[in-house]
Design a protein around this nucleic acid. Structure first.
Lengths: 171, 171
DNA sequence: AATTTATGTCAATAACACTGACCCTTTTCG
DNA sequence: CGAAAAGGGTCAGTGTTATTGACATAAATT
């Protein structure tokens, strides 16, 4: 028997609820495709992340990788051990600083990384086709603003480096 | 070198790499805020998810909740035990089917849920302010297309129900 | 020479999810 | 009505992934 309808309904709340829900489900499906491939290799998401950031930052040091991933050294060590033993990642001793172990993907690592991101690229390609490049560009701007303001420039840098790495890869 | 380096460099690849990177970092920061609050209550993300979907689907049954969360009964049980013992969630025996335990948030649960989503709402509110409602709406459309096509309507339903629950909550 | 940096590694712990097995209560159906 | 099915609860064991803490080694720095 309620029926008391207040005219002053705050409509913005529900809009944000939409957004929260969409973040949850979109990310879940987005990450689900690689999971299937990873399982076949007895790898997990941690392996994926390492592959991804080593691919985008060839020659990255352990310390810098830890900084990006924000995990402990011990967590990374286990994952990295798998990837090195499986010949997906290679360590090269730094030329300037011989303490550093600079990480690179092997051809095998590059191939796996390609397989992992393929379904995600396909997903975004479908979005691009359906909504057009302008909407897609604005989606990126929006996502960038969802990132903590103090981290946005770092992400810009990462993306830039990743693009450079891919371009150089053509040699 | 795959032969021809024509002027038509495949630019779309790097665009999708942007997108993948943005998904990763945006989601990470998006989820980081609630984590801090949850820790203070000795809760984890699993507790958050239960609070969220019970909030959006008052009176949901255990089976239906399991279906949304896609976890096992045993996994849910542990989390639900914490929430019920802590007086955040309440079980009511179904009126029609007395086997069912229908879940509702207590006032305490509603309060905690509010605190958890507040920073996320704030984040999106900043986006809305910076880019305007039109871009934000298109962001939502884009995110919806990132979701598996077979799940989109389910998500639509969830969002609709959640909005209805919030509206009815005014009694 | 002493210290710091970059990395590796052993050990213990915790969070979280899983499988499997079994139980009780209530509803459904022959 | 009585048996089977549905909804839910719980105990036990396992596995993955991440954590903290403590130490060890090699190379660079001061």
């Amino acid at each position: 028997m309620s029926g008391d309808m207040s005219k002053t309904k705050d409509r913005k709340d529900s809009d944000f609820n939409d957004a929260i829900e969409l973040m949850f489900f979109a990310y879940r499906d987005f990450i689900a495709d690689p999971d299937v491939i990873l399982e076949a290799h007895d790898f997990g998401r941690a392996h994926h992340r390492v592959l991804h950031f080593v691919a985008g930052n060839p020659g990255i040091s352990i310390a810098d990788l830890l900084d990006i991933l924000r995990v402990t050294k011990q967590s990374l060590a286990r994952v990295l051990r798998d990837l090195i033993d499986g010949d997906y990642v290679e360590q090269r001793i730094g030329a300037n600083d011989r303490r550093k172990r600079l990480l690179h993907l092997t051809p095998k690592g590059i191939a796996l990384h390609g397989k992992l991101i393929a379904p995600q690229e396909k997903r975004f390609n479908e979005v691009l086709t359906a909504l057009g490049p302008q909407v897609f560009e604005q989606w990126k701007k929006t996502m960038r603003l969802v990132i903590n303001s103090e981290d946005r420039e770092n992400v810009d840098e990462l993306i830039k480096r990743s693009r450079a790495a891919r371009t150089k890869n053509e040699t």
